[in-house]
Design a protein around this nucleic acid. Structure first.
Length: 131
DNA sequence: AATGTGACCCTCT
DNA sequence: GAGAGGGCCACAT
């Protein structure tokens, strides 16, 4: 596996239970902004997505608008949604994830005191993270 | 070797 | 506000 993919997995494994990250966010974290697309490619190489989900929870990586990847992944978006809901990730009425409520903030790791860290809905947190 | 193609995101019309 | 295009990694032909 390439170094790029390894860094992708490394970051994805840091996403805590009940939180989600976006492809673009992961790309920034590994020092490769604007390669969000290839993050998806790297995750595609994840062996046995379902079984490996505990070690590499790629189901916690979603689109920037809070929607899930269409087509193949975990056996379908519905399965992915069930996995996320089982972790307490809130979904909106339109079927998208409430990113404002469960977006992962790498700057506020688990060992930090439990903070709300819920930015306003119009807060472009992804952009802030990259700059 | 060159080309095409993806689990995407941003910028510019 | 929507549509088009570019970015730029890994891997299969």
């Amino acid at each position: 596996m390439g170094e790029y993919a390894e860094q992708v997995f490394e970051q994805v494994r840091r996403i805590p239970r009940g939180k989600v990250a976006t492809y673009g966010q992961v790309a920034r974290l590994i020092g490769r902004p604007r390669t969000a697309r290839y993050v998806g490619y790297a995750l595609r190489a994840n062996p046995a997505p379902g079984a490996d989900a505990a070690a590499t929870p790629c189901h916690r990586v979603v689109f920037k608008d809070g929607s899930l990847c269409r087509g193949f992944a975990f056996g379908g978006p519905e399965v992915q949604r069930e996995m996320l809901e089982a972790e307490g990730v809130p979904f909106l009425e339109d079927g998208r994830i409430d990113l404002a409520a469960c977006a992962w903030d790498p700057a506020a790791p688990e060992d930090a005191p439990g903070l709300p860290t819920a930015p306003p809905p119009d807060f472009d947190w992804a952009r802030e993270l990259g700059e």
